[in-house]
Design a binder for these strands. Structure first.
Lengths: 335, 335
DNA sequence: CTGCTTTGCGCAAAGACTTGCGCAAAGCAC
DNA sequence: GTGCTTTGCGCAAGTCTTTGCGCAAAGCAG
């Protein structure tokens, strides 16, 4: 492996000078700089940030701890983070948390061992007990994405769950629906509770009573969505519209409805949180709430950068607006 | 940050002893070892593999360079690699290649900077020119997954594309189909060509002629699949069955067929490569070729381990068998 | 008790890089 | 020409860990 020492010898300068041209940390005469550059090219010098991090304690690398899941929302989030990190000159390395607090903590320990200087994470349930203490021990700057913890003073980015839910429920109400079923996500996650809040708020605003029986837990899975939908279909006083709090449950709902021979949107209107690329390939096309995943990711990187530069900055919670993608399943017959 | 020096002082031993108890590299008297352990616990010592890699040149970390995509196949592959790496005591860090050779090379350079000791990658087109030379320069052990390059003597793992395709086409033929349309993937990738080979081989074996017009490029995307299907529907002598070479194209096909009012499987049988969780939620359920993604990932890790231990071992190409998931879309009315 | 082996541990160099300090040369005003 | 400021660069210490070498103590056979 070719080291700075060799480059220095080849260029006839000291290693400190080589270091300074590599990092641009102090002025180096143009002629000297070019000699060094040339020597590096000749020898094929490869910088070793890992050694730098030893002495300088910095390597421009941030970590992302997230669950690697098939959900397009996560994938776009990761892509958004990756792109923004690249733009900011940061290296990004990713580890899988498996959405499990125990595994999350070992994954983060792994990142820590690689001397990351900041962390972005979509915390699993149990994160506060297992992972957070490690981050504090290391005084590592971090920001939370997707899942917001309101009672914690930390930097975090998510979508406007409540407002978006209100908007879509509102839409259903304006179409004349008064009994709207809801399939809610994994209990305990902030995203789940916020969406339920939105459901209530929309009803209240419209002066409509909420029938608590219409809110079923679908646990964010396809199977959970299917079962919950099936239950709703058993009611004497069936809902006429359905809102699934994420895309997997929506797919489950779709399956249950078609199995039961319920026509969408004629017999039942259907809407969902989370857009996905083939949402309009179903017939009818699914009306969804599209999260700005990439923007959320980018914003997370920016927050992290800010925190890395100023550890004492006041913590910030950012909410990005979502967009309703009108298709056919809601029955409003647009396009 | 607490270093070995501090632990050593606290335990009243030298740093070398601390290092040896941490790594188990030489015999340390039980009493001493316990003192050191205790000191580490008290001080909350965190090992710094990055510093080790400086002097010892090893840190037990491997990298994964892969495209972070919504395709469930990739996701399961990543999960398989992650689990097997954990089992083997290896740390895994992931970077996104965006399935683009240029970006892939910077991502790999990033990994290299973190002193990984091995790499698993699903190479993008152009990999041989941009990334491979870097790997060779660094003498880095690596293994390829998913995409097999037959003319390169390297370690690689993939699925039996040809055999699996033969099996599924055979199934269609046995159901009486003689004109079978094929939607093929991104041209140039080994997976694509192998599946086309399988298509031909199955026909040959059955003594059936191949009509080249029936093989259309769908480029592995939903949209490509839809367009190609639409074209096939225009033929006077329409195919009676369809085989999509990946899941995205299958979804596109499904969309095109339903838009055209073609009933599956009555008017057109449909099968596809790549299973996905909600394949049986469509009606009819999609008959697919399921790849053992997790097993492929695990195997890749094993191959890498072997190569890391023995750089001169003969390169190995591993093919894992796929499984046909019979559902309704093929028209064979199983279950 | 002597001399040899084994067991247990410390010393110090090495590994690749950064950076505070300080020196020398050049530039400049007077 | 003199004295002061810039500009440009080298020296060497420091970062955390590993490991070859070698020393001391303990164990043991004779």
């Amino acid at each position: 492996m070719v080291t700075m020492t060799e480059v220095a010898r080849a260029a006839g300068v000291s290693v400190s000078t080589v270091s300074h041209v590599v990092n641009g940390t102090r002025l180096v005469a143009t002629a000297t700089r070019e000699r060094v550059q040339h020597a590096m090219d000749m020898l094929g010098y490869q910088h070793q940030p890992t050694a730098r991090s030893l002495s300088a304690g910095t390597n421009r690398t941030i970590g992302l701890a997230i669950t690697v899941a098939t959900n397009p929302y996560w994938v776009e989030l990761i892509q958004g983070i990756d792109r923004e990190a690249t733009r900011a000159g940061l290296n990004l390395i990713i580890v899988d948390t498996r959405d499990d607090a125990r595994h999350e903590s070992v994954a983060v320990a792994n990142l820590l061992a690689h001397r990351i200087e900041g962390l972005i994470t979509a915390p699993a349930d149990g994160w506060r007990e297992l992972t957070l203490p490690m981050l504090r021990d290391h005084a590592l700057p971090y920001v939370l994405v997707d899942r917001i913890t309101p009672d914690l003073r930390v930097d975090q980015v998510g979508v406007e769950n409540e407002a978006a839910t209100i908007a879509i429920i509102d839409h259903l109400i304006s179409l004349g629906h008064t009994r709207i079923g809801m399939l809610s996500g994994i209990p305990g996650l902030s995203t789940s509770t916020e969406r339920v809040h939105g459901y209530h708020a929309a009803h209240q605003r419209a002066g409509l009573p909420v029938d608590p029986e219409l809110i079923l837990v679908g646990s964010s899975t396809t199977d959970g969505g299917r079962k919950a939908t099936w239950e709703l279909l058993q009611f004497d006083d069936r809902p006429t519209a359905l809102f699934a709090a994420n895309n997997s449950m929506a797919i489950g709902a779709l399956a249950a409805l078609s199995a039961a021979g319920v026509k969408v949107p004629a017999d039942m209107a259907l809407t969902a949180f989370d857009d996905f690329p083939w949402a309009d390939l179903f017939s009818p096309g699914l009306t969804t709430v599209a999260q700005p995943s990439a923007a959320i990711g980018a914003r997370a990187v920016q927050l992290l950068l800010r925190r890395m530069n100023d550890p004492d900055a006041p913590p910030q919670t950012v909410r990005l607006p979502a967009e309703i993608m009108h298709r056919q399943s809601c029955g409003c017959v647009s396009r």
